[in-house]
C-alpha cells in the first residue's frame, strides 16, 4: 500500500457529522503570507489541500488522525484544532 488515501481507509473513524474540530483562522494569511503551504506537506493525513482557484486551504477534517502537528507546525499560528467530542474521531484498533 503506497497511497495515503488507501492508508486512511484502514483507520476507523467515528464521524461527528458537521462538527469541524479544525479551523483555519484566516484564509487570507494562507493566500498572501504563506508560500510553503506547509500544512499541505507535514500533515500525515493530508487534511489540508490548497485550492488555487478558490485561493483557500480546503480542510478535510474527517481524515484527521489527531496527531496535533497542525497547530505547532503552522508558522503563522493560523490553524486551531481541538479534540473531537468524547468517543468521536479516529479510533485506533491496533495502535
Amino acid at each position: 500500500m503506497e497511497k495515503l488515501s488507501d492508508k486512511l481507509f484502514t483507520v476507523k473513524y467515528v464521524e461527528d457529522t458537521g462538527r469541524a474540530h479544525i479551523e483555519i483562522v484566516d484564509q487570507t494569511v494562507c493566500a498572501t503570507k504563506c508560500e510553503g503551504k506547509y500544512c499541505n506537506h507535514f500533515c500525515p493525513a493530508g487534511v489540508y489541500e490548497w485550492n488555487e482557484e478558490q485561493k483557500k486551504n480546503l480542510v478535510s477534517f474527517g481524515n484527521c488522525i489527531e496527531c496535533g502537528a497542525c497547530s505547532i507546525g503552522c508558522p503563522f499560528d493560523n490553524i486551531t484544532c481541538h479534540s473531537p467530542r468524547g468517543g468521536f474521531g479516529a479510533q485506533y484498533r491496533l495502535g
Binding site: V11, C67, A69, Y92, G95
Partner: peptide
C-alpha cells in the same frame, strides 16, 4: 505484508 492500520503521532 498488508497494511491494516495507518497512524500518526507527535
Amino acid at each position: 505484508a498488508e497494511t491494516v492500520e495507518y497512524l500518526g503521532h507527535l
